[in-house]
Design a protein around this nucleic acid. Structure first.
Lengths: 160, 160
DNA sequence: AGCATGTTGACTTATACTGACCAATAATTT
DNA sequence: AAATTATTGGTCAGTATAAGTCAACATGCT
């Protein structure tokens, strides 16, 4: 069982972050690709699969002259076990009502701010509307999609 | 890591603005170009790319003798104006890149927090993935859906 | 075998910077 | 006053550079 290139590059970036105090690091896609003897787009794959917002990272980049890729590791030092636990509570499907109750609870316990709750509710509502009117998704399937979205959001916040 | 001329000039102007109380500053294109050893049109490039309305600035200028360039940092009196402005910027369709850029901007201007940006990015990405893999939505239609989501979120935040 | 994950490269898009040419305004000359 | 000249900024297209996308192909894991 060999270690994948993706894993190696992921760890390299993790180390860079650690050395840099942990919050951000800048790099050049071309340089990284050269260092690891791979094609540049491999870096995009690593970023997409390992440094996604669901994992608590934000990636900024710029093309052209003086281009760069900047990876930000958000650190909110919130009670991540708490939120992680709640993520389990969401399960594989969740109704709008249940979701809203959960969010109210989170806000009451100051795990998310009112504005954050608002954003989450608007996103959920938007997805619900799209599912119903645009794509004719069944109610149960919408509950599944809602659970997926909610879990991504909560783990993103927990890992941040 | 090399820093672009554009960045240097941008920071110089930012400093001027700060010194000047923050709302406006006047300068001469030729002088600036000389100071930074570049061609005058480079200044136009900086203004177009860094001090555009989407970054919260307006630029006035006059040619000929005693010509000048005045940079105004615009501020909104009420959130309705702000929403109007942001919604115009988003427009009826927006690419992933443009959206991300806008969010970076909003965060830099302290209009949203890093956590809020993270949540928004997760939501956008979730919608993008669903649109592509689940519902086979065309790229342009996804840009429209992204703009819709973004406008709902920004409007909600401004009114909330 | 089949599905998920990883890897590649051709093609596309975005940004930085320059220089030649254009446009507007003020100052000076006739 | 009109014409001319000097002074200033604007535009655009070309060149160089760097990142993003996408889909085909490969590998690995049940």
């Amino acid at each position: 069982m060999s270690v994948s290139l993706t894993k190696i590059i992921e760890e390299y970036i993790d180390n860079l972050l650690e050395e840099n105090g942990g919050d951000a690091v800048s790099l050049r896609r071309k340089d990284l690709a050269e260092r690891f003897g791979c094609v540049p787009s491999q870096i995009n794959y690593v970023l997409r699969s390992r440094f996604a917002p669901e994992n608590g990272f934000l990636v900024e980049s710029q093309r052209g002259g003086h281009g760069y890729i900047r990876i930000l590791q958000l650190s909110f030092n919130n009670c991540d076990e708490e939120i992680e636990h709640l993520s389990e509570l969401v399960g594989s499907a969740i109704t709008e009502q249940e979701a809203r109750r959960l969010l109210v609870n989170l806000q009451n316990r100051d795990l998310i701010s009112p504005r954050e709750r608002l954003i989450i509710e608007i996103s959920m509502r938007n997805q619900e509307d799209n599912g119903r009117t645009l794509f004719d998704v069944s109610p149960y399937r919408r509950d599944i999609m809602r659970a997926d979205l909610l879990k991504k959001l909560l783990t993103g916040l927990a890992l941040g």
